[in-house]
Design a protein around this nucleic acid. Structure first.
Lengths: 254, 254
DNA sequence: CGGAGGTTTGAGAGGCGTCAACCTCCGTGG
DNA sequence: CCACGGAGGTTGACGCCTCTCAAACCTCCG
């Protein structure tokens, strides 16, 4: 009954990971097909490449097929706050469809592959396939739920908790789309970038990663994450994954 | 050409402030009517009253007609992080429509009046009035944009900047719905609650409010906000209001 | 009049930032 | 082949911002 990433990817090479383990199974075959066919093109970009600038009007949205993307905002002194990290299967800027522009910047982390969805096509989907439209809406709301959890992380947790929470979330999301196994996955982030996501400095991230390692909780080295003690790490993070809406039994079916 | 709060409220006593100054003018008369008529009932609640609990399945969403509402999450030691404050004209938990449950708690701040929208009715709107449905989607995305700005606030600003940013945002939002004039408005919050919103302690909020007052930037006393120097306050806050999508000229009309 | 909750101020502690040095790694070019 | 430079990782010393603990006061309301 669970979605199988391999199977979905074979039949839907672009959108095979869309909402995987998060209600994907409740989309009809036709809806899956309509979404897959709505992509107009596939683009590739190198790492550290800016995709969208704050304020820029946009007429298409990007679905992340492969790689990692970050959304961020710069402060006056040039310091950066990452507000979101995207993994394969995420719509990166679907929220730009109803809003028509973005209130933040978007850049790739490593090299990526994205599928382009023209907003005309998305409008057509909401008119001809309203249920699929509600799935798209739902996808943007998972983003909002993660935003809230990041607010909690920054407002109430110390450095150790913030990093632990960040890795717990990424592990759960990577696992949902079949890219993490047994607490191991690749995450193309540097320590300074981790700091930008967690409201810390690079130096302090380094120290805190060391204590997490010395406590036997997890390891992060050159983009490779290894969670050693998932239970204790989640305790440090005060991590409760319900906000990711994975495998929700009580789904009402939209 | 601008919306007039008084006029909208006369003809639409419940939803008169919905998306006011944020694209409301682009809704058709029929769409306004359909939305107003979709409310099933109006409820009143006292202050400090919990409206929804985390995880609870919901079958209706609440539109805030009068008063203030907060959304928050509790950590393990009982400390609280407020992730959102709502003012009249906001849908409080419209995101619970596509998701079917909430990942956080909701409570009133002062006494409130809310209009109830059954999810059946919202489903009908997305099917029969897809354009209105996209306006509803848009409303949830403004929430997400504010979440991102809160992440920035907590991750990159010190205590003074955080409070300044919070008040700048609330001032802009209250002004948009006609409830703030010349930087003056009512905000039924205590200092400990401000602390819960800004990731600080009540004690430190008190000290920081004093410096803001002594610097001639603003005043906050028993729920009354007076912004004395909007420009300098915005500078301290690094506040750029574009994320609120007020009066956006380039609106593409959904 | 008494109590609860909010506001205000003080003293001391600690977490995290800043600055600085040195390291490894890796791609580039002489 | 090796010198060089840049980006990231690591560690230490020091300082400040914010938290913690504590107490006094104030206001509202039962």
């Amino acid at each position: 009954m669970r979605d199988d990433p391999e199977d979905d990817l074979a039949t839907h090479p672009l959108t095979g990971r869309f909402l995987l383990r998060r209600g994907r199974a409740r989309m009809s075959a036709e809806e899956r097909r309509v979404l897959e066919d709505a992509a107009s093109e596939v683009k590739t970009y190198p790492g550290r490449h800016q995709l969208v600038r704050r304020g820029q009007p946009i007429h298409h949205s990007m679905f992340l097929v492969d790689g990692f993307v970050s959304r961020y905002m710069d402060d006056r002194e040039g310091y950066r706050q990452i507000v979101s990290v995207h993994v394969p299967g995420d719509f990166v800027d679907l929220h730009g469809f109803p809003t028509g522009r973005l209130d933040h910047d978007i850049a790739t982390l490593g090299p990526v592959r994205v599928a382009i969805f023209e907003h005309d096509q998305l409008t057509r989907i909401t008119e001809e396939h309203p249920r699929l439209g509600r799935f798209l809406w739902f996808a943007t709301l998972i983003d909002a739920a993660m935003h809230r959890e990041w607010i909690f992380r920054l407002g109430r947790l110390g450095a150790e908790g913030r990093l632990a929470h960040f890795f717990c979330e990424l592990n759960a999301r990577m696992e949902a789309v079949g890219l993490a196994h047994d607490g191991r996955f690749t995450l193309a982030l540097t320590q300074p970038e981790l700091a930008e996501a967690c409201g810390l400095t690079g130096v302090h991230v380094n120290r805190t990663l060391r204590t997490l390692r010395e406590d036997g909780l997890m390891n992060f080295r050159s983009g490779e994450v290894t969670i050693l003690d998932q239970k204790r790490l989640a305790a440090v993070a005060e991590f409760e994954p319900d906000y990711l809406y994975c495998d929700w039994a009580a789904w009402k079916g939209l």
